[in-house]
Write a protein that binds this DNA or RNA. Structure first.
Lengths: 339, 339
DNA sequence: TTGAATATCGAAAACGGTTTCGTAAATAAA
DNA sequence: TTTATTTACGAAACCGTTTTCGATATTCAA
């Protein structure tokens, strides 16, 4: 049989298309009896309206885009969960795009969002992103968007982030208080807002304690695949035996540190203390249990979505710096930083 | 300024809409010079066609739906990654829907997929799903879809799964070989294909070794939130001190088993051996390292997507039982099952 | 009783592309 | 030169909704 459109529905009911359309959306200009009939028939035939026809006419898609570097990551998984939780209540659809940390991909994806495919976009910038022209386009086209977690600094847009600087500071202080003399900060990309802020907090704490001369002595960039990260960490520790504490700026670095420590029988926390920015559920049952700075991932996603939807609904897109929300992370001490 | 449509593009170029449209898709009926001009102008004005207009006319959406129970789960995150990896090469968009293990939600979501919003759907059934009427609808409407990981038994559709029965069998054998006398199987929902198969393999192995009388003595259903699971596991172990080995049918059960073991100072593997179906990256660095049966999550997602796209492209949807693909999992022994 | 207001519906114009088909000019064949 | 073919383009229909606006019938006020 042919596709079930509103036209066939109308014919079946002996009504006009317009009437059926209005009846389905409970318009006041349709009598309640006809409404009942239409609803009944729609139910019976299992009619479900074509969303694209509707979107085309109404110029809104009931869809949002989420653009993020990767999905196989605890933080982002949880954030997606938070986003979904509010999208569901709004009856919105969510498209997921992965930038794979590539600037090019991110740019292209953002560009596609200019087409009207989505009513808004949630974005966590890739580590390569160094230019904001594509964000500017979104703004020019008046498409609501908000950064979550990884923002682009110096670009005015709503941002839902965590207290990265402060946490970097706290992490360093913790290591020092536990007796570390040569703590190091493992970054992934210093042009990533979260990393630069965390490392800034870290170095600030060290400076405050009179520890630091050269930033590069203590802040190391680690990028690449898990394997290459493993190698880098191994090299680092081999060439710098004085390092007795590490702050891992992101989760996957922490895992490799542990891997390296078992491979080279470095005992944590005796020889090396570790604190990691991480939402790993398994942190308490690692060997040893891992001290973490845990971001409120779900809440970040959730509030980012909420902000986005108020923008979509209020058509008030010109929100600026004052719409930055900071959801604090929590430092949870465990055995990897025992004195 | 007003929206940039193909109409304004045409006007700007002094060409007809039809010509511009054809030029943009490199039609042979357009001269190469006009094509060049059109492309240049499109590039300059940053024209990006309205996907809904296109979808409406062409009756295809370049979009697939992925319906799964949850996303904050290692397996599903990796599977999504696999799905994305092929969707990207096909220039397809992917919509993510979460059923939250609810049959109702799954049904509604599937129903929405009947609207033409998507060209195909990838689905991992919820643990509550006991009826296949909604799948039947998809089939009737000729919408390609394939199950991944969690299939619906007795429903003919392409399925990309792993060797659950065999792995359940192997897990039991492993525990027995390590000296366990009273192994238990922690299930989450016995009407879930993966769990019933895994437990069937498990009990088969026990039966083969002359161990079992009553299935329910050894197979326990654990559902709920992490907290309630914790309580259930704790109760189980308290009331059944004879249990000296556990097969965790899903990842989140394993985590709670570890939590319970630290809370009650039960030593793994001495007092309790554990093997878990899991893709946890942290398995090697847990305390103790966790023996896992690791599913090829990425590959399952990837091949599921590949199968889906061949269905979409070939318009050959009537694939039946013979299109079941089994990607084997691998048992990785670690310290949680040391003899 | 008459004019105005209201209730209920339908015709038709959008929305922004794609595609069919027709046409005019240019080229090739006769 | 005439006819047939090819090339390059445009007019218009179409996809399935929503929405404006007009039309008719009914109810109400005067």
């Amino acid at each position: 049989m042919s596709k079930l459109t509103i036209k066939t529905l109308a014919k079946e009911l002996g009504l006009s298309i317009a009437t059926v359309s209005k009846a389905l959306k409970d318009s006041h200009e349709i009598s309640s009896e006809t409404k009942k009939k239409v609803l009944a028939m729609a139910e019976q035939l299992n009619y479900v309206p074509n969303p694209y026809a509707s979107s085309l006419r109404k110029q809104k898609s009931k869809t949002i885009a989420v653009i993020l570097p990767e999905v196989a990551d605890n933080f982002f998984s949880l954030a997606i969960n938070g986003i979904q939780s509010v999208a569901e209540t709004k009856n919105y659809h969510v498209l997921i795009y992965l930038s794979h940390e590539s600037f090019e991909i991110e740019k292209n994806t953002v560009n596609h969002c200019l087409s009207g495919r989505v009513d808004g976009v949630l974005l966590s910038v890739s580590s390569e992103t160094s230019d904001a022209a594509h964000f500017e386009k979104l703004k020019n086209e008046n498409i609501p968007f908000v950064f979550f977690d990884r923002e682009f600094e110096n670009f005015a847009a709503p941002k839902i982030i965590t207290n990265d600087y402060e946490c970097g500071f706290l992490a360093a202080k913790l290591l020092l208080s536990k007796g570390c003399k040569h703590p190091a900060f493992l970054s992934t990309s210093e042009n990533l807002s979260i990393c630069s802020k965390r490392s800034a907090g870290f170095t600030a704490a060290l400076t405050e304690e009179g520890f630091i001369k050269d930033k590069h002595e203590f802040v190391i960039d680690c990028t690449g695949t898990p394997d290459t990260i493993f190698d880098q960490v191994q090299e680092l520790l081999k060439n710098n035996p004085q390092i007795d504490g590490i702050v891992a700026s992101v989760e996957r670095l922490a895992m490799q540190i542990y891997m390296v420590s078992v491979a080279n029988s470095i005992t944590i926390p005796k020889e090396l203390k570790v604190v990691a920015f991480s939402t790993l559920e398994t942190a308490p049952i690692l060997n040893p249990s891992l001290t973490t700075i845990t971001q409120p991932a779900f809440e970040i996603g959730k509030t980012a979505a909420e902000v986005l939807f108020t923008m979509i609904e209020k058509k008030k897109h010109n929100i600026t710096a004052d719409s930055v929300m900071i959801l604090p992370s929590t430092l949870i001490e465990r055995n990897s930083t025992l004195a």
